[in-house]
Simulated scan of single mutants.
Amino acid sequence: MKIKKTVSMALLVTTTLITTGCAQRIADLTLASTKNINLNAGNFAEGNRVIGEDSKPIILFPLGIPSIKEATDRAIEQDRCAVGLTDVSADSEFFSFIIGYVKYKVEGNLIIDKTKKGCEHWEMKK
């Protein structure tokens, strides 16, 4: 009977450690960009909702530091006419038990600059 309790307790502790992780909202922003924007152009359109992520693996210890800028760039660069994001949320996610990851995720609506070359007749993708 004592062995069953020990095995049950070890299983519970192992399950708890394996499923341990953390996610946290870093910021909610109205407007965000890592690109140069000519705000005087005034010929902008709102595009699709996109997500950009940057993550680094953890194997006993982190093998790098993720970048919120890289996550933002990856979101913006999903459309060549995009210059920024609106209604932005930035989150941090972490999981580690010997092996895991640390990640930044940026989500927002694309800001399309119609004055950029080749973007004059931009239409929202479905």
Rank of each mutant, 00 (worst) to 15 (best):
M1I: 12
K4Q: 08
K4G: 07
K4Y: 09
S8A: 11
S8P: 07
M9P: 04
A10E: 01
L11S: 04
L12P: 09
L12W: 00
L12V: 02
L12F: 07
T16E: 06
T16Y: 11
I18W: 12
T19H: 07
T19P: 06
C22H: 12
C22P: 01
R25E: 14
R25H: 05
I26C: 06
A27F: 04
D28T: 10
D28V: 13
T30K: 15
L31N: 06
L31W: 15
A32M: 10
S33F: 00
S33K: 00
S33W: 06
T34C: 11
T34V: 07
K35P: 03
K35D: 07
N38G: 09
L39N: 07
N40K: 14
N40V: 01
A41T: 03
A41W: 04
A45R: 13
E46Y: 07
G47M: 00
N48Q: 03
V50K: 00
I51Q: 10
D54G: 05
P57L: 03
I58P: 04
I58V: 04
L60H: 03
L60A: 05
F61H: 03
F61Q: 09
P62D: 02
L63V: 04
I65L: 09
K69N: 07
E70L: 15
E70Q: 14
A71L: 06
T72I: 05
T72Q: 11
R74K: 15
R74M: 02
R74F: 04
R74H: 08
I76A: 08
E77L: 11
Q78P: 11
C81S: 01
A82R: 05
A82E: 03
V83E: 02
V83G: 09
V83I: 05
V83R: 01
G84P: 05
G84Y: 12
T86Y: 06
V88K: 14
S89C: 07
S89F: 09
A90V: 15
D91N: 14
S92M: 13
S92C: 00
S92Q: 12
S92A: 13
F94T: 12
F94A: 01
F97Q: 01
F97A: 11
I99S: 10
Y104N: 06
K105I: 08
K105F: 06
E107T: 08
I111K: 09
I111F: 11
I112Y: 14
D113G: 10
K114V: 03
K116M: 12
K116T: 08
K116Q: 15
K116Y: 08
C119P: 12
C119Y: 02
W122M: 07
W122Q: 11
E123F: 01
M124E: 14
K125L: 13
K125R: 15
K126M: 00
